[in-house]
């Protein structure tokens, strides 16, 4: 009995960091195919990480201790995030750190530190990227909190595990608010994970960079950690979207077959999200920076409408 729970916890803790480079690889692959390119293998992000861990490091002479510590703290925060959200087994009910506000603010924790690290090296790029990142992050938080709140009020709990567990039966009763909240959540997802139309994850043109410009001065193992945490954050958001807005497939059972099926189902849902994001990214252009607030305020207002509909029902 207890060993099974132990194993489930083990898989739960390692799932996000283990799977996240794959998701990045799949997204890149789909985007490449949509652009009529062959694209790199889906395992390429793993190879990149290994390569980076093997390299020596160059650190700016202007950087302080903060610059050196930040990658570890950010990666640790994504690990805690991964452990706090529902993934595939309802046996793992994290009642300690599974509150959705903890998730939102842990994400803010990573963003805050990364922005500081971007400023720390004293280059022009890191500074303006930090400014843009904090502007977007500040405006995204509202839409994110309110869209998750819609679900929380429907399930009468702010714990994500409970939401994922109890939303299923009520899903079609309050379909409209859930769909609205999902739209709002997707906008927040694109903004927080540096996707089109907010940021170009593969750009190396300085004027358009946001996330890439903040980590410009990093190299070697610290760059690997930051790239990996960005991938983790991407998968965390996908997992939130997949398990909260499509709350099926999380198993209560402890049999290994059921767990395996649930795990595969979770991976399938995550891949569907990757596909959707890749298609979305390939079909829209990047927005001008000052048009982004319009989109974020749209997310904010849509989720307020969703909340209004929830509360009245």
């Amino acid at each position: 009995m207890t060993t099974t729970v132990f194993i489930i916890w083990g898989i739960h803790l390692l799932l996000i960091p283990a799977l996240s480079p794959f998701c990045i690889g799949v997204t890149r692959k789909i985007k490449a195919r949509l652009q009529n390119r062959a694209g790199a293998s889906v395992w390429q992000p793993y190879r990149d990480l290994r390569k980076l861990f093997c390299k020596d490091e160059v650190i700016s002479q202007d950087a302080s201790w903060l610059f050196r510590v930040v990658p570890y703290l950010i990666f640790a925060s994504t690990l805690v995030l991964g452990a706090s959200i529902p993934l595939f087994s309802a046996r793992v009910q994290n009642l300690l750190t599974g509150d959705f506000l903890v998730i939102v603010y842990l994400i803010a924790f990573g963003t805050f530190l990364l922005a500081l690290a971007g400023i720390d090296t004293g280059g022009a790029f890191g500074g303006f990227a930090a400014s843009r990142e904090m502007t977007i992050a500040a405006l995204t938080e509202g839409g994110l909190i309110l869209s998750l709140l819609t679900l929380a009020l429907l399930c009468h709990s702010t714990n994500l595990a409970v939401i994922a567990d109890t939303l299923g039966p009520r899903y079609f009763l309050s379909f409209v608010p859930i769909v609205l909240a999902f739209i709002s959540f997707m906008i927040a997802l694109l903004a927080e994970t540096c996707r089109y139309p907010f940021d170009n994850p593969s750009t190396h043109l300085e004027l358009t960079m946001i996330h890439e410009a903040m980590i410009l001065e990093y190299s070697g193992k610290r760059l690997a950690l930051l790239e990996w945490s960005a991938a983790n954050k991407y998968l965390v958001f996908i997992a939130l979207g997949a398990n909260l807005f499509f709350p099926w497939g999380i198993t209560h059972s402890q049999s290994s077959i059921a767990l395996l099926v649930a795990l595969l189902l979770f991976v399938a849902k995550a891949l569907m999200f990757c596909l959707a994001i890749a298609v979305l990214e390939s079909s829209i252009a990047k927005f001008r920076f000052f048009r982004l607030p319009d989109l974020l305020f749209t997310s904010f207002i849509i989720s307020i409408i969703a909340l209004g509909l929830t509360v009245k029902s």
């Binding site: 861990f53 093997c54 390299k55 020596d56 490091e57 160059v58 650190i59 700016s60 002479q61 202007d62 090296t121 004293g122 280059g123 022009a124 790029f125 300085e206 410009l216 001065e217 070697g220 193992k221």
Partner: peptide, 15 residues
């Protein structure tokens, strides 16, 4: 894992 890697201090790159 990365005990043997060296860390070099260099100026910030600014084009």
């Amino acid at each position: 894992m990365t005990r043997s890697r060296r860390v070099r201090i260099a100026p910030t790159w600014d084009c």
